[in-house]
Amino acid sequence: MYFSSGDSGDEVVNGLTPQPDYSASDPNVTAVGGTSLLLDKANNRVAETGWETSLDSVDYSGTKAMYSGALPGDFVFGAGGGTSTLFKQPYYQAVAVPSALSKANGSTAMRVVPDIAADADPYTGFYIGQTTGGSFSISAIGGTSLACPLIAGIQAIASQGRGFAIGFANPLLYSMSTSVYRDVVPHSPIHFASTAGGYLGTFEAGDTQYSRYGYDNITGRGTPNGATFVKAEATH
């Protein structure tokens, strides 16, 4: 079972202490986090950050346009993640997850979310075309509700090359080499502007989660490294 890690970061934006969402925090499911994935016109990867997006609106009410607040503005959405206060650390996370995260709430190592990630930011998400009432329209979708089925689809492809089903994926995902993942690492601020000039956005800003080298609580072990990931699962 694959569960989205949520779209409200670690819930600090909602006035709560840092925490992951349930059901993604259950040790018996695979929690899927999210990234902001930037591609060029040839679909080559330009940059990838943990999905934590802030917006700073432009105020045009005065004689001079000004940002509504200090950059990066207000956190609007991002991938869920964090350290559980309920579930103890599952055995498969013991080697990969740093103690700074697993013991963030005390001396006992606990379950940390997510396990893996994929593109989730609506600003870098998927275009979907649909015909409704005879009219065709295109809209963009995102969220970990996009990332989760992307991972489930990749897992379905990988399953076709195996002699037996993957089943519960986490022991496999944590036992494979780091080379099968793209590690989503800290990045200098990346800004983007709305086409109408209404706001300036910043990727991976405004929450208490941060990308790290290796495992982190936005993207887990990272994103699948294309065919390398699929082949590794098929033969592991």
Rank of each mutant, 00 (worst) to 15 (best):
G78R: 03
G222C: 05
D216S: 07
Y181L: 01
G6A: 07
F168C: 06
A31F: 05
T228Q: 12
T202Q: 09
A31C: 09
L71A: 15
M66S: 13
T17H: 15
A227V: 13
S188D: 13
M176R: 11
S99K: 14
F168R: 04
G222V: 02
Y2K: 09
V112Y: 00
P224E: 01
F164G: 15
L173H: 00
R212N: 11
G197W: 02
P72H: 02
P20Q: 05
Y215K: 08
A79K: 04
F229Q: 04
N225A: 15
V95W: 10
V95A: 14
Y123N: 11
T124Q: 05
D183T: 04
S99A: 15
E52A: 15
F168K: 04
F192D: 07
T85R: 15
S211E: 10
L150P: 03
S177C: 08
N105E: 07
Y127W: 12
T219E: 07
T219K: 08
L71C: 09
Y199E: 09
S175P: 05
K88A: 13
G198H: 09
S68K: 13
A117C: 03
Y92E: 00
L173Y: 01
G69V: 07
A165M: 07
G73S: 02
L37Q: 12
F192W: 11
E204S: 14
T195A: 12
G82A: 08
S194W: 10
I154S: 02
N44C: 08
R212A: 15
V32C: 01
Q130W: 07
H187V: 11
P18N: 03
K41G: 13
M110D: 06
L101V: 05
W51C: 08
Y2S: 10
L172P: 00
F87P: 00
I151Q: 04
S57G: 12
N28R: 13
G153K: 02
A100D: 13
Y91L: 14
S159L: 07
G226R: 02
A96P: 00
T144D: 06
A24G: 09
Q93Y: 00
A109Y: 01
T108I: 11
Y67D: 08
A109N: 07
D121Y: 01
P186H: 09
T202R: 08
A104Y: 14
S57L: 15
S139A: 13
Y123S: 10
T85S: 15
Y2D: 08
I138E: 11
A156Y: 10
A234S: 11
Q155E: 14
I218D: 06
S61P: 00
S84Q: 05
D119V: 11
Y67M: 09
T223R: 03
A227N: 14
G78K: 06
V95L: 14
G73D: 01
R182M: 10
R221F: 10
S84L: 08
G143H: 07
G15M: 01
V184Q: 01
G125C: 05
T30E: 01
Y67K: 04
T49S: 06
R111L: 08
V12T: 14
L200G: 10
I154M: 13
G161I: 04
M176A: 04
K231P: 12
T208F: 09
N105C: 05
Y123G: 10
R45E: 13
A169R: 01
S175F: 04
P18K: 02
V32D: 05
M110H: 11
P98Y: 03
A65P: 10
G214S: 09
V95G: 12
A205V: 06
T223H: 02
V95I: 14
T131F: 06
I157S: 01
